[in-house]
Amino acid sequence: MPELPEVETTRRGIATIMPGRVLRRFNVHEARMRWPVPEHLAQTISGHVVQSCERRGKYLLINFRHGTQIVHLGMSGSLRSTPLDGDRRKHDHAEWLFDDARFLLHDPRRFGAILWHPAADGPVSAHPLLARLGIEPFDPAFTGDYLHSHLQGKTVAIKQALLAGNIVVGAGNIYASEALFRSGIDPRTRAGTLSRPRCGRLAQAIRDTLGDALESGGSTLRDYVNATGAPGAYFELHAAVYEKQGKPCPACATPIRRIVQGQRATYFCPRCQRR
């Protein structure tokens, strides 16, 4: 699934082109996605100027004066720039056409979403999909103290607490495994038992892991491409533990272990990462 670095990389790509331009046509080629694309969305936004392109968690927010288009890339989707006269591929379900630019949403599994939040309904942050999201990892308020206070009383494993997304967004399955390795924390540790100093190390590791991923453009998907069509290569080059089962830990050479938590694979070093 495209995670925060992939979505942010996509946002940066579309943000260099869309804002300030008139969306000449928005075409829906397949409305049957995770939730149906609103029936009149094409008429609602075609002919209007894109004001800005933002992100909240893993949601892209394409802002117009009269509302916000909320886009989710689903399990394997991408939003990419294509030539104006290029062919539309199978699974290209939606199309943004400008005078000199064209973007296509590609989503083979149709687990993504394209929704509309009218400005009359209040700030987009109040939308049900966004209202319960945790803090952004690069927000200055995301500190060890913040993390420690929000983990108090939680008996779930720290990896599960991070994946929930209601404390901090962006620490998806792969990035959580990597951040826990960097901070030396066993992923099975009960979240509420982490000390304030360990929370400080974990908060920094989350920022560093996601920051490194952003520098390389992602990727949590083997076939992920960003808004310009370029592939991501982060984990091919830099993963320390993810999908490294049985290989030597880069710090101590102990074989990396794989366990399953909440039906998700977790990788860690049993020597470097302590409960």
Rank of each mutant, 00 (worst) to 15 (best):
M1L: 05
E3Q: 08
L4E: 08
T10S: 00
R12A: 03
R12D: 08
I17V: 15
M18L: 15
R21K: 13
R24H: 10
V28C: 07
R34P: 08
R34D: 01
P36E: 05
L41Q: 09
I45G: 01
S46H: 06
R56N: 08
L61T: 12
Q69R: 14
Q69W: 12
V71C: 03
G77A: 02
S78L: 11
T82L: 12
G86I: 06
D87H: 10
H91S: 07
D92C: 01
D100V: 07
R102V: 10
L105T: 05
R109Q: 08
R110T: 07
G112K: 01
A119L: 09
A120C: 08
P123M: 00
P123L: 05
L130V: 15
G134Q: 07
P137T: 11
P137Y: 06
L147I: 10
H148G: 03
T155G: 07
V156H: 02
N166V: 13
V168M: 12
V169S: 08
N173K: 09
N173Y: 06
E178K: 03
E178T: 13
L180A: 02
R182W: 08
G184N: 04
I185M: 06
I185N: 02
I185D: 01
D186A: 04
R188F: 10
L194C: 05
S195Y: 03
P197Q: 07
G200K: 01
A203D: 06
I206S: 04
I206Q: 02
D212F: 03
S216Q: 13
T220I: 06
D223W: 00
Y224L: 09
T228K: 11
T228A: 14
G229A: 12
G229Y: 10
G232H: 10
A233M: 09
Y234C: 06
E236I: 13
H238Y: 12
K247V: 04
C249F: 04
A251S: 14
A253L: 14
T254P: 03
T254G: 05
C269Q: 02
R275C: 10
